[in-house]
Simulated scan of single mutants.
Amino acid sequence: MFDHVKFGVSDYAASKAFFLKALEPLGVAVVSEGPPAYGVELSAKGKASLCLFQTDEKPAHLHLAFTAENRQQVDAFHRAALAAGARDNGGPGLRPHYHANYYAAFVIGPDGHNIEVVCQAPGA
């Protein structure tokens, strides 16, 4: 269901250290990291990931990413979400700055949360 969950934290270094230590028994480690405003991705062996980033926003908006089986589902999600009243935050397409097969669409939901659907499989 979830590909990753991303949320803002008020103390990036402390939160990163806490989650790494607390989730270490589950095999969680750093998968990728950018500057604190972008954040860190934590995962266990390529499974769903938890992403943290530095923010002063209170409460911080959530970034929820759902897994799609194929790119057509990403496209359909985007159309359906806009029809349901969401605001576009990035139409369906490849995001090669994440990786070569990262195909996603983003919308802003009713409460301001960034909702994403992503397919990470190679497309036709």
Rank of each mutant, 00 (worst) to 15 (best):
Q54F: 00
A48P: 12
S43A: 15
L82C: 08
V28M: 04
A17N: 02
F106I: 11
A22W: 00
A76S: 09
I115T: 07
V40A: 08
F2R: 04
Y102R: 07
Y98G: 13
E57R: 05
P59T: 00
A84T: 06
A124H: 01
D111C: 10
A121M: 09
Y12F: 15
V9T: 08
G8A: 12
Y102I: 11
R87V: 15
R79A: 15
G109P: 12
A48I: 01
Y12P: 08
L82N: 12
K47D: 04
Y98F: 14
V5E: 02
A44G: 09
A100T: 15
S15W: 14
A44S: 15
F66H: 03
F19K: 02
E116M: 04
S49F: 04
H61W: 04
P110D: 02
T55V: 04
D111Q: 15
N101H: 15
P36H: 04
G85Q: 10
A104E: 14
A14R: 15
G90N: 09
L62K: 01
G109M: 10
Q120W: 01
Y12R: 13
G112E: 12
K6S: 06
A60D: 03
L26V: 00
A44T: 05
P96S: 11
D56M: 02
A86H: 11
M1A: 05
K6P: 01
G34S: 08
A68T: 04
N101Q: 15
H4L: 13
H78K: 09
L82E: 04
V31Y: 02
L64S: 00
P36S: 06
L23K: 00
G123R: 02
A121Q: 09
A29Q: 14
A44V: 09
I115K: 05
G34P: 04
Q73Y: 03
Q73H: 12
K58I: 05
Q54T: 01
M1G: 07
H99Y: 14
V5T: 07
A22S: 07
G90W: 14
G90V: 06
Y98D: 10
N89M: 07
K21G: 00
H63L: 05
A65N: 08
F53Q: 03
A60F: 00
K6L: 12
V117W: 06
A105S: 15
V30N: 00
D11W: 01
T67S: 11
F7E: 06
P36Q: 03
H63G: 11
Q120T: 06
A48E: 06
C119W: 03
K47N: 08
N101L: 13
G39K: 14
F18V: 00
E69L: 09
S10Y: 09
R95Q: 13
A65K: 06
A17D: 14
L23Y: 03
V118D: 00
K45M: 05
N114I: 05
L62Y: 08
T67A: 14
L52T: 02
F7A: 12
A44P: 11
E33G: 02
A84P: 08
M1N: 08
P122I: 00
H113C: 11
A48Y: 02
K21R: 10
F18R: 03
T67C: 04
G34V: 01
A14T: 09
V117E: 06
Y98C: 10
R95Y: 12
A48G: 04
C51M: 14
V118S: 05
Q54N: 07
V40K: 13
A104F: 10
H97F: 14
E57P: 01
I108G: 05
L94C: 05
E41R: 07
I115F: 07
L20S: 04
D11E: 14
N70M: 03
E41Y: 12
G34L: 02
S49D: 01
